[in-house]
Amino acid sequence: MAIGHHSILGIATFGYLLLFILHVFYCATRRERVISFIWVMFSVTFGLHTAGLLLRWVESYMMNIGHAPLSNFYESLIVFAWSISLILLILKKRITYPFITMGSNLIALGFMAYGSLSPSVVRTIQPLIPALQSNWLHIHVITCFMAYASFAVSFICGIVLLLTWKGIVPPKEKLEEINYTSIMIGFSMLSAGILTGAVWAHYAWGSYWSWDPKETWSLITWIIYALILHARFMKGWGGTRIAVLSIVGFISVLFTYFGVNFILTGLHSYAT
């Protein structure tokens, strides 16, 4: 095959880098035309990213080990970055603030670059081990990563809420609204991810809950976001306190994703 998925994903990574530079350029010049160009550029990058993932899927079938690109750590990094961009497109109408798109693109760039540059990441297409050969794989992984991606957007809102840069930083109420929307999507998706995972575990491992480190940490993350929702709606918290909690929540997400893979071993250790 002339063009492999690695080269397309490489161009997409470069696209995210370019997007970051464009954002910096906008912050410096404040030209509105840059914003519309950013959205065009972002759509192209997202299209390439999607094409790269699909091509990897097709290539796996050509190797006779066909499966969706959701099975190892490299694939999860690419899917994580892709999910962040997808959430951004879904919320496009609400997220008209360059600060949020800049942060999201930067995180996507980080995951893409880590996936394609780190020597410790295996980038080849690997066959699917028996435990992962299930239709639950798709729904479980996609819901979880949609949740992670929404929490990434919420994390950026949390960071921006703590900043004070007049003119560039969006109004606080708008930020809180975006933060709430992304936590709402993220919390629903995380719940769906945990519950579909539990149902799958019942069929694959013989128990719907085994206190595997990944399970325990996703429960901790779930509790943190449940606390945020309760603090906001029952106690009327807002502003800095919610911002800090959103950041703490995302740190827990990152630990669930990276920390558990690298530090703790358990049933979920396919991904390393």
Binding site: M184, F187, S188, S191, A192, L195, V199, H202, S207, Y208
Partner: peptide, 23 residues
């Protein structure tokens, strides 16, 4: 595990409730 059916019912309630509450 005779509790699995009840657990599944609980899961269904949680997901349905989340949809109703948020969407």
């Amino acid at each position: 595990d005779p509790g699995v059916g009840i657990v599944w019912t609980g899961f269904a309630c949680i997901l349905f409730g989340l949809f109703v509450h948020f969407f």
